[in-house]
Design a protein around this nucleic acid. Structure first.
Lengths: 236, 236
DNA sequence: GGCACACATTGATACACATCAATCCGTACG
DNA sequence: CGTACGGATTGATGTGTATCAATGTGTGCC
């Protein structure tokens, strides 16, 4: 239990680069991992496939193995807020209570490891250390959520975009990906719905940043040139 | 462990009305509770007192016993985003990893139960069910964070305020408080920093809602008259 | 090749909210 | 009792971003 509160990976949600089922639980032994794998299945998803929907019973939990999955919350009207983009190693709905409070969809083709909730619960019952891992994952997720709240409430469009891009780059880099021309697989609409903007504002702001020499826009990619020249505060 | 994933209190973060140390752990027996109480101390805080600061080592965790505590994240400049208001029974930084990622301050005079992190860790070591409780609390906090992200990113000022007020009312009601003239102890600036607005916009929007007959503004309180007449969507 | 369709980009305009600036109010304090 | 002070309110004005509308650009498909 000492580990629960330990000053361990204060850095980022899931720094594990291994792209295999169960990789998110970094403390598991080989035997445990083998058993865990057997409990779930790897499901391939086509682009735009919906993994689960807000309001539906949370029967399974998920871990991204390949690709990108976006998590979002919707309202009766068309409004959508993307709360995050999940990368390989990231876990979704691992502690959902009863019903999904969000939806998730594959941004591109994705491979997802899905495990029935009860099976995972059984697996964890006799392995207390698993709970510690989960607590740490959730703690990181909460910190991340606070960051995003700050961005949504207190940053202007330029800063939102630069912060988003640099964070995205850092996450991909942590997975060992090549990020010099940074891959940006999600659509402008996805970015807009993530940052609380409109598609048009995202386009225009990216164009403005390019004109200023801060970035270079390529098809499906963006090169980050001058990360420092981020916008000054827009709100007092 | 079955309980971890059970479809239990999907409703709200900490529905426990008992305002005493440890009340947030609803599954504890009397003996456990007594021991737990002995590990921490009740600390009275004056209005505006800072409980802990973003960046400082997370040495303790906290539980509000009386009063209101606001949790916020700041930037080098004066920008502040209040991520939530904690009420009696709510827990803060229970799973912080190493350093505080947010700050917290008393909105009014407050009584807070504070416990050193290691002591709580020791307490929980031999009580696996405590971890389950923590996971459930954190899961609720994550759901809540997603709600707030949606509000910050996709609601206009009127809707932000109405949603905020009704949620605040529901939380107080759950604690058994009288909410007909809803107590609003936090300042307009606090509300603004919570909703991603400015003080002036909060004032003006409240005035507009009052003119429309949706609310009635009283000193330190607001009466909710027509909760339904919330604003239509402002963003597509 | 050419059509269709979704996505991206750019422009013109409107508006919600921020900003700047008073004024008002309640409370603390000399 | 007057002064000072922070919070609340209201007004005048500016601007960032949304909205509406059109035009590119690519990609799949017949």
């Amino acid at each position: 239990m000492t580990k629960l509160m330990a000053a361990s990976s204060f850095a980022a949600p899931c720094a594990n680069a291994a792209t295999q089922p169960g990789a998110f639980l970094s403390q598991l032994g080989a035997a445990d991992l083998r058993q865990l794998k057997a409990l779930g299945e790897r499901v391939p998803h086509a682009s735009q496939d919906v993994l689960f929907t807000q309001g539906a019973p949370a029967a399974k939990c998920f871990s991204v193995v390949e690709g990108v999955v976006c998590v979002y919350r919707t309202e009766h009207d068309n409004r959508r807020q993307i709360t995050g983009f999940a990368l390989p190693g990231d876990v979704l709905e691992i502690a959902a209570q009863g019903y999904h409070e969000v939806s998730a969809a594959a941004v591109g083709p994705a491979l997802v490891w899905e495990i029935p909730r009860e099976k995972f619960a059984q697996f964890a019952t006799h392995r207390p250390y698993v709970l510690n891992e989960i607590v740490a994952l959730m703690a990181a997720e909460i910190v991340d959520a606070h960051d995003k709240m700050f961005s949504l409430g207190r940053r202007a469009a330029e800063e939102k975009l630069m912060v988003f891009l640099t964070c995205w780059r850092d996450r991909l880099a942590r997975l060992g990906r090549d990020v010099d021309p940074l891959p940006v697989p999600m659509s402008r609409r996805d970015i807009a719905d993530h940052l609380g903007l409109t598609v048009e504002t995202v386009c225009r702001t990216l164009a403005k940043l390019e004109r200023r020499g801060a970035i270079e826009i390529l098809p499906g990619r963006i090169r980050l040139l001058d990360t420092e020249s981020v916008a000054a505060p827009a709100l007092a």
